[in-house]
Design a protein around this nucleic acid. Sequence first.
DNA 1: GAAGATTGAAGCGTCAATCTTT
DNA 2: AAAGATTGACGCTTCAATCTTC
Lengths: 152, 152
Amino acid sequence: MKSELGTRLVREIMATADIFLRESQRLFRPLGLTAAQYNVLNILAEEDGERGLSQRELGDILVVDRSNVTGLVDRMAKSGWVRRVDDPDDRRIFRLMLTPAGRELWGKATPLYHEVVGQVTAGAGRKRMEETLALLAELQNRAPLWETPQKI
Amino acid sequence: MKSELGTRLVREIMATADIFLRESQRLFRPLGLTAAQYNVLNILAEEDGERGLSQRELGDILVVDRSNVTGLVDRMAKSGWVRRVDDPDDRRIFRLMLTPAGRELWGKATPLYHEVVGQVTAGAGRKRMEETLALLAELQNRAPLWETPQKI
DNA sequence: GAAGATTGAAGCGTCAATCTTT
DNA sequence: AAAGATTGACGCTTCAATCTTC
């Protein structure tokens, strides 16, 4: 059973991520925010610069389909947290910016998030976390192999 | 920045799981199967026993809402891979069983899955994987802490 | 033609409400 | 009343097709 350990590893990584996702959804819910929307807030808040991101760029950072960004931004714009601004140079493009309300919400959600993450990872130990991060990076790099099973 | 490492760890676990999910979807797609459906196949196939699982039990194992199981089983029954059998003792319950076609599909999908997982985890090293598994288990155990931020 | 954004269809997931059976 | 299953509303995600602009 050489690969059994690998199978378990993959399963537990996915199970852990599942739990994190579920719990973060629960954490953000009272703020009217979803986990996906918090990611957007986070990215846009750090893009403090003037230009803002295009929807395409946001999708690339989130690693989601462009079509997904449309609805996500729709909902967040409706909630008043994000604005679409016409790009002056290219009329195909919208530039995304946080509204003041969006920035305020981000300011409220972030310490909450950091607090629980800090608690959950508290006893993990710096070295062990770094080793795990290295392993995860290797797995991510090898993931493209999934695309080529063998043309069954 | 004591907690920054923890934040990175959480982010990378979720990113890695994301990649695995995406790639496994791609892997199963030619078989007309989704990743969630493969999990069902897998659980039901190992439940080789006679009784089968109730939908409630399946949901508990998958860690998804009961309401989700209904649609999942609907679609798999429509594809002819799963059967709902009336429980002889309790008329509220359906017992779920793989059809022969479902078992055959499972037999086809599983070696494919194990092959790619084996490739992706190939260079990881037994000891490192075991250490990571231990860390993941700790994180999962601590996850309930997410529920109690501090009643903001 | 290619790139950015959108739309529609489908699957997966949650939650809240309902129905049947226990 | 409690438990198993279902339904409906909503959000996230993908894929394929379309529209506008480059």
